[in-house]
Every structure is written in C-alpha cells, then in structure tokens.
Design a protein around this nucleic acid. Sequence first.
DNA 1: CACACTCTGGTAAACGCTTTCCGACGCGCC
DNA 2: GGCGCGTCGGAAAGCGTTTACCAGAGTGTG
Lengths: 359, 359
Amino acid sequence: MSEPSRTTPATLHDVAREAGVSLATASRSLNGSTRRVNEEYRQRVLDAAAKLNYTPNLSAQAVARGTTTTVALLVADIADPYFSSIAAGVVAEADAEHLIVTMAATERDPERELELVRQLRGQRPRVMILAGSRPTVDRTEGALADELAAYEASGGRVVLISRNELDFRTVLLENRGGAERLARELVGLGYRRFAVVTGGEGLRTAADRLEGFRAGLAAVGGRLDDADVVRSAFTRDGGYDGARRLIERGLDGIELVFATNDVMAVGALSAIRDAGLTPGRDLAIAGFDDIPTVQDVTPPLTTVRVPLEELGRRALRLALAEDADAGADADATAGETAHPRGGSVEAEVVLRASTPGIG
Amino acid sequence: MSEPSRTTPATLHDVAREAGVSLATASRSLNGSTRRVNEEYRQRVLDAAAKLNYTPNLSAQAVARGTTTTVALLVADIADPYFSSIAAGVVAEADAEHLIVTMAATERDPERELELVRQLRGQRPRVMILAGSRPTVDRTEGALADELAAYEASGGRVVLISRNELDFRTVLLENRGGAERLARELVGLGYRRFAVVTGGEGLRTAADRLEGFRAGLAAVGGRLDDADVVRSAFTRDGGYDGARRLIERGLDGIELVFATNDVMAVGALSAIRDAGLTPGRDLAIAGFDDIPTVQDVTPPLTTVRVPLEELGRRALRLALAEDADAGADADATAGETAHPRGGSVEAEVVLRASTPGIG
DNA sequence: CACACTCTGGTAAACGCTTTCCGACGCGCC
DNA sequence: GGCGCGTCGGAAAGCGTTTACCAGAGTGTG
C-alpha cells in the first residue's frame, strides 16, 4: 500500500510484465485482435491492466495502427444554437461509434477555416466535418478545396453540412425547398407584402433560403421588393439590427419579415418589440431552423423545422458508411464521378403565432 | 506533373529526403527546437515541406515528446446554451494556446461521466475540464475522484467548473452569493412569497443556488416554504414541468418563482403563459445564468449574470497557469494542502421586466 | 512414426516523430 | 602549431503501440 504514486501512466509493457506475458500477448488480450489468446493468459492480462489502471495510449495506437479514432468538427460558432445542436448530434453519433470528436470554431472567417483545416489535418482524423456555409464568393475557396482533397486522398473523409459549393460528401439541408414552402404557406395565410432580413456577404445557406423564399412567393403572388431585403450579420444581433433598420426606414405596407435563420429572427423579434410594435399583430415574423428557443419567445415563431441534431448524426454516418461504399478500387479512374451525396434532410414548415392568419 | 496522387500523407522522412538533409535537421527546422540550424538548410526544409504539403503527425509527435496538445472537455449537454457558451470559451482560449479541444457529453449520467473520463485519459490530454455539477450524493464519486487523481498524478491537470465537491483546481461560480443577492433585490422590489423550481437529484449547483436564495430571503424577510420548492429535471422541459405542477397545485399567494437556471426559467415562463397567466404580472419569474435567450423572451427575464464564456477561458488558463505554479517538487508531502482554487467568477443580478416592482 | 497442419506465444520490426550523443569542422589562443 | 571550445549535421535510440514472422506444441493422417 506504500504505492509511491508513480508519476507516469502504466504502459502496455508494465501490464505485460505484471501479467508475466509478452508484449504481444498483452496487446492481443486488450484489444479486439483476430488472434485468440489462451483464456488464462487473457485473464491475467486483464487483471494486471485493471490493477495498474492501464489505459492504452491513443497516440501510440494511432501511430502503430496508422489510423486514429478521431473526428474533427468545424463550426462557425460553438455558442450558436444552430451549431451546438449539430455538434451535439455529431458527438452523440461519434460516441456510439467509439470515436472522439475534436472541435474548433472558424468564427465565420474563411482564412481561419483554412488554417484550422490545415492544423486539424495533423491529427489525421478519420473524418472531418465542416458545418456552416461560407461566402459564396471567396478567394480562399480553391485553397480549401485543395486542402480537403489532399486530406481525402490520404484516406480521410470530408463531409460538408449544408454547403454544397465544394465537391465532397455533403448532407444537404432543404434550404431552398423549405423556404419555398414557407412562402407558399404564408401567402396562404393572407400575407402579401414581405421583407427579408438575411446574412450579409452572400452566405450560401442564406442565399438559398432567400432564393427559395422568392421562388415560393413568385409562384403564388407574394411581393418582395429588392429594396426590402436587408443584409446584416448572420447572428442574433444582426437580426436585431436588420429589423431595426427596416422599421426605421419605414415599413410602408410590409406585413411580414422573414429572417433567414432563427437566431436572426429572435433578434428581429426584439427589435420589433423595442420599436413599439407588437410582433405578430403589427408585423408578422418567420424564421428558419426551429431552434429550441423559438418556442419560448412571444409570440412563438413560425419557422421551418430542421432536425439539427439529426443533421450532425447523419453527417457522421455518411462519412463512415462510405468506408464500406468505397469498396473496390474506386480509386482508379473515378475521375468525374461526383462523390456520393448524403441526400437532403427535409425541412418542415411550422406555423406558430408569430404569423397569424390575416385577411 | 504526373503526380500519381500518392495515398499517404507526406512524412518527415519524405521532407528530409526531398530537402537532402537528415531527419534530425528536418525535425529541427520545422519545430521550435533549441538547436539552431543553418539558414540555408532550414530554408530547403521549409520549401520541401511546403512542396509536399507536409503536416506533422500529431500522434507521432505526442508519442515522441511524451506530451500532447490536447485538452479534453466534458459537459453535460452540448446543445444546452449554458454549456455551449462555456465550451466556446474553452475552445477560444485553447485556440490561442495552440491547443486542440476534444469534447464529450456526459448526458448528466455520472456513470457515463466516469466512463468518459477513463476513455479520454487514453488521449493523455494536457488538461481535462469537467463542467457541470453532479449529484451531491453519488456512489461513483469516489471512483471519479480516484480516476482524476490518477490522471493528475501522471502529469495531467484537472479543472472543475462550478463544482467544488472534489479536491481539484476549480473555477467557482458565485452561485450562493449571486442567488442571495438576487433574493435581497427581489424582496427590495416588494416580493414576499416565493417558490422555487429547481433541478432534481440534488445537483450541487442547483443546491447552492437554492441555499443562497434561501439565505437571502431569510435575511430580509422573504418567505419560501419547503412545500413550494419543486424539483424537476435541470432542463427547459424540467422548468416547464415544475412550473406547471406548481400552478396546478394552486399558487396560493406565491408572487414569484425562482428557477435555478435560465433554461428552466424559460420553460417555466412558457408554462406560466400556457396556464393562462401573464408572466411578470400574475406571477413574476427569475432565473440564473443570463443565457442569451432570456433577453429575447417576453418579458425579458430577471436573472443573475454569469460570464459563461469567460468561465471557460478561465478554466483553461487556470489549468495552464498552474504548470508554472506547480514549480518545485510540490509532489512530495503536499498531503492536505488543497489545490490552488481558481477563485470565483462573480455573478451579477440583472433585473428585467419579468420581476416588476410591486407594492 | 514421420509429416503436414493448426494453434498460439514470443521476438522484433515497424509506425512517424524527437532528442541524445557523437563527430567533423572552424576558430582563437598561448 | 597544438589544443580546447563552440557550432551544427547526422546516426541512432528511444516513445508506446501493433503485427508480421517465427517457433514450438499439439493433433490427425497415411
């Protein structure tokens, strides 16, 4: 019991010695090797490992096996409910697969994103998941694509979430379709004049949602003037700011403002209220994503539900599934054959009190 | 240009060969070694590395150096704004220190937490941060403590966030004090009869907040009957449920309900509204944490502001700082000497419309 | 009873790095 | 001109694993 509190963790070597077997046997007993080992030895090893509180050194295993159990996840902002929900999904699924996830935040900066990808590549993660879209035009895009391609060439798997601008496995969000249906439903409720508060710099996701919304309105006779599309940061404060500007400028008949994501919508909601208007009555509002919050604000927000956590799970599954998929030496002249897309996660319009029926 | 798209990432060996130098020189050129290397060689190595798109294999470095650049973060639930904000702080700080953070979710299950700690230990992370308290009484606590102690003995650093029940470095949240001041302020506004909706199973954080609240009330003559403390899950739905039960049972003079965290408060808010009451007027409500959402609900929630992201940053800084701190061989007979605490992050009462002045 | 198998332990060679140690070289000094 | 010293490349020994390969034992067959 006078354990001298050794300062370095037990190594496999220690376990082997303690159990009186060779390194190889110890290794074989402790992990799922194809080789069988005598039950007695096995037990001895297990006991020794328990006694020494042995944990395999993952780095060493990675080096020896030439493969890690890591998945890297890149999001724009961890505190944003959109991303944290996705992350929760990724982590949950990873856990089920005994994978470990490392996370980094791009802070919506393409340069930073590129930098992080480079850095994360050093981990040799099994898969790399990039969530959150980047500007539609962006001068680092080529570099990012190259970096990711190099990563895939070396056996890694890239999955993009809701950003189809690069040619990799992607789980798509039905941004366009969801927004289009939302537009139709809103017109069905009697709304005619719309405004949009959306993310700045042409984020792909925002652009798709806007486009879908436009298309939906066009189909059923809703009106959205270009002047009534205001751009701002893709955040809560951006939403607040956008709505404020809209109101200050004069609503001039606008009945409903569509914020291209819920955190913006929530900000917009507060802006509306702060302007002395009653959201829902004086000015209706709708968002996109269905983050948990929107059920608890007043009025609850009409939005387009996206199964965010499922999005994350799906992304990881897609990355892993393809391992089987890759199968034969698809390596050869695959050439132009696009990567298997992950299909699209469907979005569902959820009408709530923020867009009461009118007329 | 007929690059045959090699399938394995460039290794240091490749770089050395390409540059026409030895492994040692290549290694020395690419990382901050103490040894100087001839500028010409250095440049050759750098060029070769760039040309081959070389990224050092972090696992191999870890094995060779005997130390990683990883920090492990354990939270209860990634999608919960409380934890995701803390995580954002940890990640931000880690990034500044060129550390990589790996994240896992305990899902509020002590067994799972213990399991994760064991698993994560395999990574040999430089520091391990545990956020979120666990039940005050819990039969796995001893095991957890042992596991963490073993980890520290092997050179790792444990930091606990807002859970002082174990003897490790800790960033404390001023739960008790904050709640106490909140109670005083509320009584100052004219409230006398209180109820509390709090987390079940005796979570430490929840318990401290309740205790502080009680103490504050006691000091200034507020009334909180034991029967008016309802327990539920420490989540949004738990808050909803708790408030609902309270209301169904009959308010009987209760003027204000204090939810021991904001996500519960938000749930409670909805419950109040769903019960046909007007929050703030018929029943006031206050929370704790000041998560972003509470400014956007109606009415905005009175709460106790906690700088969550700072909490995360602080935790990591504490872990790293102590490296210097540990200094001499504090190893010896430190014995009862408590770990250096990280001090307490202060909490500030924020009064909002959900608790208007009365009387 | 020799022989070909199948099993299963152990030995040692990887894996991709870092770092210690050695030795070559250039320089200043007495 | 010999010698001590400082500088800097390279060879090689690790780091903690896994795994290819070998060897010995047991088993069934002709």
